[in-house]
């Protein structure tokens, strides 16, 4: 396998492999995103997969086969579901693809031995935030099919957005390319011997200790922010008694047979 990689890298030098990957990925995404209504799905998916494969060739190797395959699986699921999320027509499907992307990202966190963050991401993000948005979507758009979901702003919006994204990504990728300034030296050995990171028996205890000693003020501030957000959300939604229009179904004003507006004025017959 590595000789294929070397051959490919010889055919297309490092940075142009990158350029191809970015351009193909961008094209694939553009077809999906700008033409939400057209059936270009297969073509754009092939382009996207091709670009990811090229990117996979370009990325440096960091470990044995098991680690590489796990990482590639998780990373490709994360990126592919994210790409599908922003280019799918129905917003409910978007939320579900996003939840899948969150699951893959949580897997990436677990890969880095960040157990608490990995599981907390699923619990809070995928399990609470996305579910709440699913509620609102299902109540606001029961058909799941609205005209403004199928078209973007103007004809140039999607290409411009992709250009901006591509420039950002290319800047980052070129930094890490073999002739770029930021590429970590392959001769740099592991910063910490791997065995020390293997199983962390007291991960959560260490996390808690660090959180409450070095970052205590931040924790308190975040708690206050959450409280303020809760109060704020309720304050924004509550409309007060003046805006409340009672209907017959809540039973708070039972109208009599005559339906007179002044029926409750002193009880005059």
């Amino acid at each position: 396998m590595s000789e294929w990689r070397d051959q490919l890298l010889q055919m297309l030098p490092g940075s142009s492999l990158l350029v191809w990957a970015v351009v193909l990925g961008g094209l694939g995404l553009w077809f999906r995103v700008a033409l939400l209504d057209r059936p270009t799905a297969l073509f754009s998916r092939i382009l996207g997969l091709l670009s990811l494969v090229l990117l996979g060739f370009w990325l440096p190797r960091f470990g044995g086969w098991a680690e590489q395959v796990t990482f590639w699986l998780l990373a490709s699921v994360a990126v592919l579901t994210a790409g599908t999320a922003i280019s799918t027509r129905s917003p409910v499907y978007m939320a579900i693809w996003f939840a899948l992307s969150l699951l893959a990202t949580s897997g990436l966190f677990l890969f880095q031995n960040a157990q608490f963050i990995g599981f907390a991401t699923i619990t809070v993000y995928a399990g609470a935030i996305v579910v709440t948005f699913l509620f609102v979507l299902m109540l606001a758009q029961p058909e799941g099919d609205a005209p403004y979901d199928r078209v973007s702003w103007a004809w140039f919006s999607a290409p411009l957005a992709l250009l901006a994204g591509g420039v950002l990504l290319a800047a980052m990728l070129l930094t890490f390319s073999p002739d770029g300034p930021g590429r970590p030296d392959a001769s740099l050995g592991p910063v910490v011997p791997p065995s020390a990171l293997a199983t962390d028996q007291h991960h959560v205890a260490r996390l808690g200790g660090e959180l409450y000693s070095r970052h205590l003020i931040a924790v308190e501030v975040v708690g206050t922010v959450l409280l303020v957000a809760m109060v704020g959300a309720v304050a924004i939604v509550i409309q007060g008694k003046s805006a409340y229009v009672p209907g017959r179904q809540d039973g708070s004003r039972i109208r009599g047979r005559r339906d007179a507006p002044s029926a409750s004025s002193g009880g005059a017959p």
Partner: peptide, 16 residues
């Protein structure tokens, strides 16, 4: 080490 958070995470997935 974070087994109980894993339990909560999967309970949240079941809501889906």
């Amino acid at each position: 080490d974070a087994a109980l958070i894993y339990v909560f995470a999967l309970s949240s997935i079941a809501v889906y």
